[in-house]
Amino acid sequence: MDIIVENLTKKYGTQKAIDNISFKVKTGEILGFLGPNGAGKTTTMKVLITFLIPDEGNIRIGEFNVIDQPEKIKRHIGYLSENNPLYSEMPVIDYLKYTAELYGLPKSKIKNRILEMINICGLQGEKHKNIGELSKGYQQRVGLAQALIHDPEVLILDEPTAGLDPNQIIEIRELIKKIGKEKTVLLSSHILAEVEATCDRIMIINKGKIVADGTAKDLRKHAQGKEILQVTIEDSDKNDVFKNLQELKTVSLVDFIPGKESTFEIQSNPETSSRRSIFKLCVDNGWTLTEMTVFETKLEDIFRELTMN
């Protein structure tokens, strides 16, 4: 089931939480939703799951319209809320049964499906405990289990790995990736590395508007066409090297790196590379080139650049 969002606007009072955004998520795609706090990620998700009613715009999930047919859409969506609210006084197994019944799973299948979910989410040891007694990590698994119990075609996960330890994070990521192969997944996160590791596509949202949309590779290319190198040149006079580097045609900026003798940071002009000419320069002058590192623009930098004003 594809998710198609067209010109969605949601206001809280006079403030626009989401400002006229449009996007599409295809079946089998995992879309990562990034943005600073208060950017409108959670609001967008709450509109998609039919909890909030949008002020303007049109949303379709599969053949259903969110505004006209919420009851039908709900059956096809699995949702994990941001802080994963659960009934703390209920035993895990009872809660999963309750959820399965609400989704209208046939009685004969409920038992097997619950056992399956308990296995997938690693809850065997905890199934008879009250949810309130579980650690944050296990509660997160219960949240995931209730979102997956009816085998939904669309999964909407608001910060699915919040509060988990590194091992659990990796497990949950693997799980999402596995599930995401046949389903449409939209997940939000603060952690850029996570989005990069899990998602096929990344969308960055800021102040209710989409500021970037594409694969991690696309975003890097788009945000910074410039090559940045760290170069160490020895057996030479520092200032002489500096002057010569600056004279190279492709180089736009040379900088000393504080605390490091004879190491330079070199920024090239857009769309060009200075690696060959630096090597040639060293050969011609008889200098020794001991290091040349290409710096990749970090996703963090792109994120900061797009979301800071």
Binding site: S81, N83, P85, S88, L102, Q146
Partner: peptide, 14 residues
């Protein structure tokens, strides 16, 4: 208060 109402209302119930 706990937010469970949100989860409940996203289930197919009116």
């Amino acid at each position: 208060r706990s937010g469970t109402i949100e989860v409940l209302l996203t289930k197919p119930v009116s």
